[in-house]
Write a protein that binds this DNA or RNA. Structure first.
Length: 594
RNA sequence: GGUUCGGUAGCUCAGUUGGAUAGAGCAACAGCCUUCUAAGCUGUGGGUCGCGGGUUCGACUCCCGCCCGAAUCACCA
């Protein structure tokens, strides 16, 4: 049983006997004792002061005395500071806790709740390579899936690939006009990068056309609409929807280049999916749902043929569902995708990991699905995360102001490799292959932690001029702590970790480590409730800090007392176990040495 | 303009249903490797928690007003 729940029982009994109060769980406020006071855990007694009709310090003392006296109480000592009752828990209790943690292989994980959560993340467009913004999405999506699994959900990770639409037509068109048959093989470029280059090329040529037309006296609005390149792209989209063979073949070919590129990036990033949907397979489903809704009077058609939903009753605007030329938009496709997913899986909760710029979209989607009669409409969760910003603002693919995902990962691994070259003492005698593998884990660990430690709802800043740290509150710091422990464990000769001394005195640094380990299950739960990998990051960092301080002050293997040595080894072993577990929830690998 | 989210140290960020004197890292400075991995440990300096009211034993946290920033309100995705 956790210390909190054990104490809660004793406190309820105590305040009942003392003041005849039936205390609620909410009234029993326990927090870690601040380091400047003696104690492990502190009860805030203010909630009882009124009913007790005594001064806060006196109430604290009375409850403390009662707790000390009650049978089976883990309280060894207490002190009262104003309304705060600081409790010292006896060492035997802590040792029992540690032994219980050690016995549990999946410590921190919640039991299976037999419910299915689908998590959609990544969801790339096939007209450009992944950039730092996508990296945040992918890392968050993956981590949240791991965290929810640890909280007992069965999780299906899914990806909706935006493989059709005007954006990919732009790349295709530019490639036809300016590509001279360039392929990934002929150019040596990664497929997604190749396509991205043509997307940028389209934009460049299009701007040129618009500028010329404006120079010839046309107003900009009209020029943007009437530019031949744009017209051609729109015509191509129409041909695509009509199934034109030439367009479809080109589309298949170019998308396959992109997928090969994406696969490489995903693999490197360490993310994967259980089921991938493609919008080219779902948009028709969406269209037919919209047609049904239209027939049922849920939507209406304008004179130009476009189809709209009137959401003014819901406090929103009118929303386009089908263009006047009959082609579908993002919303149409998402309706179709949602329908297919719920046909394919018995989903209890649907989570969309999508940037906060699309909050309006998901509000609308939720309402539309609900109106169309899908029971899951109201329940969908938009996990809305903040943008990654550069010092001069947002990243824009078309303007080339992006931090490329592949480049960034390369850079991080290179940096890690460079730094490791100074560590000749610890890494001597390892092969080139091992060294590269360590650098890969550490470089990616630094990147992932850097991104995940920020509260997902907030925008975050990335400055390409400043390299991501490998010291301090970073992934490598935590990885290093793990590697250190592994080194100690490799050298330990103990066959069995047995604490034989019943009156073993626990040092303060040992105790705070045990207490920290005890926190882990609650942290996992909180991370799940809040959908926040950052909660796990903060915890892993605090745990590593505690361990490093302990490690610095107290020797493990050179401790002569066998029971103490066993305790410390047990601690080290379980700190490593929890670090590994926490890092796994973040999608960060831990090296055995570094 | 409406809606939503944010504003904490020079910089990047924590701060869990309202709890004790608001914390880390980076950067700066000063120490610690003959000793289990120094990607570490210890210390110093650094704050009007955007501003002003309110609620109460107690407010970075909750409420109201204002200032600043971002996103969104497309026949873009």
């Amino acid at each position: 049983m956790s210390l909190e729940s054990l104490l809660t029982q004793h406190i309820k009994t105590a305040v009942k006997e003392l003041y005849s109060i039936e205390a609620t769980d909410a009234q029993i406020q326990l927090q870690k004792t601040r380091p400047e006071f003696e104690g492990n855990i502190t009860l805030v007694v203010f909630p009882f002061v009124k009913a007790a009709r005594k001064a806060p310090a006196q109430v604290a003392n009375e409850i403390g005395e009662q707790l000390l006296a009650s049978a089976d109480s883990p309280v060894a000592k207490y002190n009262a500071v104003q309304g705060f009752l600081n409790l010292v828990i006896n060492d035997a209790f802590w040792i029992k806790q540690l032994e219980a943690i050690d016995a549990e292989e999946n410590y921190g994980k919640q039991p299976d709740r037999n419910q299915l959560m689908m998590v959609e993340y990544s969801s790339p467009n096939t007209n450009k390579p992944l950039h730092l913004g996508h990296v945040r999405n992918n890392l968050l999506g993956w981590s949240i899936a791991q965290i929810q699994e640890a909280n007992g959900w069965k999780v299906v990770k899914t990806n909706i690939v935006n493989d059709r639409g005007i954006h990919i037509c732009k790349s295709m068109l530019a490639w036809l006009k300016f590509g001279n048959g360039e392929t990934p093989e002929s150019s040596g470029k990664k497929g997604d990068h190749l396509i991205g280059d043509y997307y940028v090329r389209f934009d460049k040529e299009y701007r040129k056309q618009v500028a010329e037309m404006v120079a010839n006296g046309m107003d900009e609005e009209t020029a943007k609409r009437e530019a031949p390149l744009m017209k051609e792209a729109q015509a191509m989209l129409l041909k695509w929807e009509q199934g034109d063979k030439e367009v479809r073949d080109l589309w298949t070919k170019m998308n396959s280049w992109v997928y090969a590129g994406f696969d490489e990036t995903y693999k490197r990033m360490g993310v994967a999916f259980d089921k991938i949907y493609y919008e080219s397979n779902t948009y028709l489903e969406g269209k037919s749902e919209v047609e049904k809704g239209l027939a049922a009077g849920q939507f209406y058609r304008r004179e130009d043929g476009s189809v709209w939903a009137d959401l003014t009753k819901d406090g929103l605007d009118e929303k386009l569902l089908l263009r006047s030329d009959g082609t579908s938009v993002y919303m149409t496709q998402d309706i179709g995708t949602a329908k297919l997913r719920f046909q394919d899986y018995p989903i209890d909760k649907m989570v969309y990991v999508v940037g906060n710029e699309q909050e309006y979209h998901f509000k609308v989607l939720s309402i539309l699905l609900d109106r169309l009669g899908f029971p899951f409409g109201k329940e969908l969760v938009h996990f809305s995360y903040g943008m990654v910003e550069l010092p001069n603002g947002k990243m824009k693919s078309r303007e080339g102001t992006v931090v490329d995902a592949d480049d960034l990962m390369d850079k991080m691994v290179e940096d890690a490799r460079e730094i490791s070259k100074d560590k000749v003492n610890t890494l001597q005698g390892i092969t080139e292959v091992e060294a590269n593998e360590i650098a890969r884990k550490v470089g990616l660990g630094a990147l992932k932690y850097f991104i995940l430690k920020v509260d997902p709802r907030k925008n975050m800043l990335f400055n390409p001029e400043e390299s991501i740290d490998f010291n301090g509150n970073t992934g490598p710091f935590i990885q290093y702590t793990y590697a250190r422990i592994q080194s100690v464990l490799r050298k330990a000769t103990e066959e069995k970790l047995q604490i034989t001394n019943d009156n073993l005195q626990i040092a303060p640094k040992e105790l705070s480590l045990i207490q920290r380990l005890c926190d882990y299950p609650a942290i996992v739960r909180q991370a799940g409730d809040d959908f926040s990998p950052a909660v796990i990051c903060n915890y892993a960092y605090a745990l590593a800090c505690d361990f490093n301080s302990f490690y610095h002050d107290l020797s493990i293997l050179n401790e002569p007392d066998a029971s103490k040595r066993a305790l410390r080894l047990l601690l080290a072993k379980n700190v490593a176990k929890v670090i590994r577990s926490a890092m796994e929830l973040l999608g960060i690998e831990v090296p055995e040495r570094m």
